[in-house]
Amino acid sequence: MLELVNLVKKYGKVTALDGINLHIASESIFGFVGPNGAGKTTAMKIITGLLAATSGEVRVGGANQVQSRHALAEKIGYMPDFFGVYDDLKVSEYMDFYAGTYYIPYSGRRAVIDRLLDLVNLTDKRDEYVDLLSRGMKQRLCLARSLIHDPEILVLDEPASGLDPRSRVEMKAVLRQLRSLGKTIIVSSHILPELSEMCTDIGIISHGKMIATGTVDDILRNLHSARVIQIRPLDGVEKLTDFLRTKLEAGDITQSMGGVEFPFAGDDSALAALVKDIVNNDIGLVAVSEKQGSLEDVYMQLTNPEHAAETETISVS
């Protein structure tokens, strides 16, 4: 469990983080979303101990206990948004170096390194120079490096940036696997569809403020002003449209792709009642579905400058 409590970071007069509050549950994948300069990397650097917060608190694990860099290093694995590799080392030597930096005994290193290289699918590259690896492989190697001391929490800054589609899929698979192994993962990305597929929760940050947190589904459902329902009748789109006009505001109903589409403010039981009414009026239905809003829509809506001026954290649970 990781908690940020009223975290503030100021660089002179510039406020990079403006009172961030965040609760990340254990064994979840938390996606940090926000435009460039929003404060994602700053928050991540504070969590890893690379930057000191101007005020506020980071709680790792929940209870108030000691303050030590050593303890923090043990709990957190960090993968920044750049590779950070030594080109003159072989893959196994690179991993061995970082095993040394966490004082893993020489005798146990080989097993740890082999297991991690297997996890990131680089076993056959263990004796190759890091320099010769592809970008995707280097990225996976960096992920393996950040896991060398078996941390509880993984902080990954843009892990999929610059990767080809195959490498991204592989990276996502590895992260899911890590979650199943009990890791808490914090990941920042600009690639929203990917985050919505991968993350259990997301937080949208803009201008140093957390403007929305919650599960992806909840954020989509609650931040859209209304659900959009699509109904495809067996025949007679006109008949269905006429019927709906008696029930809903006429202007909102649009016809498309052999069906109708309209915003619906009611809950699931109201929708079920509406569908029952339609069927009782002898209109055959082929499909009733809810149009999926995209995370991108929400992101664009929340991070536009007009919205930023009136931001207050929307917590969705």
């Binding site: 000191a52 506020g56 608190e57 709680r59 694990g61 000691v66 303050q67 709990k75």
Partner: peptide, 10 residues
């Protein structure tokens, strides 16, 4: 971060 700031662990 010579002054690590407020961190708490369990």
């Amino acid at each position: 971060a010579r002054r690590l700031g407020k961190f708490s662990f369990s």
